[in-house]
């Protein structure tokens, strides 16, 4: 309990046994639509977590509401499926009260950027020990396909039959604007790239106070915001079918 906020995962106890991806799988049946990118994100995270070498019981996954927010049920860690947009607030309380926990927020574009936009900004700038995974599929999937704050203008959905008129929000710009200490972006289908942005930066990167924290590296940002950006789909008329898998998982991490 004496750790400071900038200790990152350095204050989380390490495991003496080597875990596997299987250790992080819960007994729950995974229920996303067939072909959804969330499956790949889940598998990648389950494969990645053992590499952190942390005690599994010191990990907590907190989510809000939406397809992405089912995530905690599928991981055998402590977890809370909370309320729409508010996961960063609950995670903040956990991280402040318990510096020995590695606290993760799993959220989506509607959850984090629309109803929970304010909490996201403040979680990033407050910089307590959190890692936020934002699954951006540019549509409200759970409620059957309304346009989201990251849908491109002109997106035709049930709630925008003539095409949406709002300009989309860029989650990476927002995270950088809020001065998140590490911002990365990857595609669900790019397992290697996704694993890379999940990993904490090397301890040597950055000044002493940021050792073991995630510090923004410009190379990551440049790469993730330019070459990895996909052309958005024109329509998102039927929720999250396979043909509408724009899902770029864009982890914005503040640690």
């Amino acid at each position: 309990m004496t750790a400071t906020m900038s200790d990152g995962i350095g204050s989380v106890p390490r495991s003496t046994v080597v875990a596997t991806a299987g250790d992080y799988k819960s007994d729950q049946e995974v229920r996303w639509c067939p072909g959804c990118g969330d499956y790949i994100v889940l598998n990648t995270v389950q494969a990645f977590l053992p590499t952190l070498g942390l005690r599994r019981e010191n990990l907590v996954f907190v989510s809000g509401i939406g397809c992405s927010s089912r995530f905690p049920y599928y991981l055998d860690t402590y977890g809370m499926h909370s309320i729409h947009g508010r996961a960063p607030t609950i995670a903040t309380g956990m991280a402040v009260a318990r510096p020995d926990l590695s606290v993760w927020v799993v959220t989506g574009d509607g959850d984090a950027l629309s109803i929970g936009g304010n909490h996201l900004i403040h979680a990033l700038r407050r910089n307590v020990n959190l890692t936020i995974l934002l699954f951006n599929n540019r549509v409200y999937g759970l409620t059957k396909g309304q346009y989201s704050p990251t849908s491109t203008a002109g997106t035709i959905t049930k709630s925008t039959p003539m095409g949406s008129v709002d300009a989309p929000l860029d989650p990476v710009s927002l995270a950088l604007g809020a001065e998140a200490t590490f911002v990365g972006r990857a595609l669900d289908s790019d397992r290697a790239g996704l694993t890379e942005v999940l990993a904490p930066p090397p301890a040597t990167a950055g000044p002493p106070w940021s050792r073991s924290t995630r510090t923004a590296r410009s190379s990551t940002l440049v790469r993730s915001t330019t070459s990895r950006r996909r052309t958005p789909p024109r329509t998102a008329s039927s929720g999250c079918g396979p043909g509408n898998r724009s899902g770029s998982a864009a982890p914005t991490s503040s640690a």
């Binding site: 907590v60 809370m80 909370s82 609950i90 309380g93 956990m94 991280a95 402040v96 009260a97 909490h119």
Partner: peptide, 9 residues
């Protein structure tokens, strides 16, 4: 939210 999260913790 922070208070409830802390209670969970």
């Amino acid at each position: 939210g922070a208070a409830l999260g802390a209670s969970f913790a």
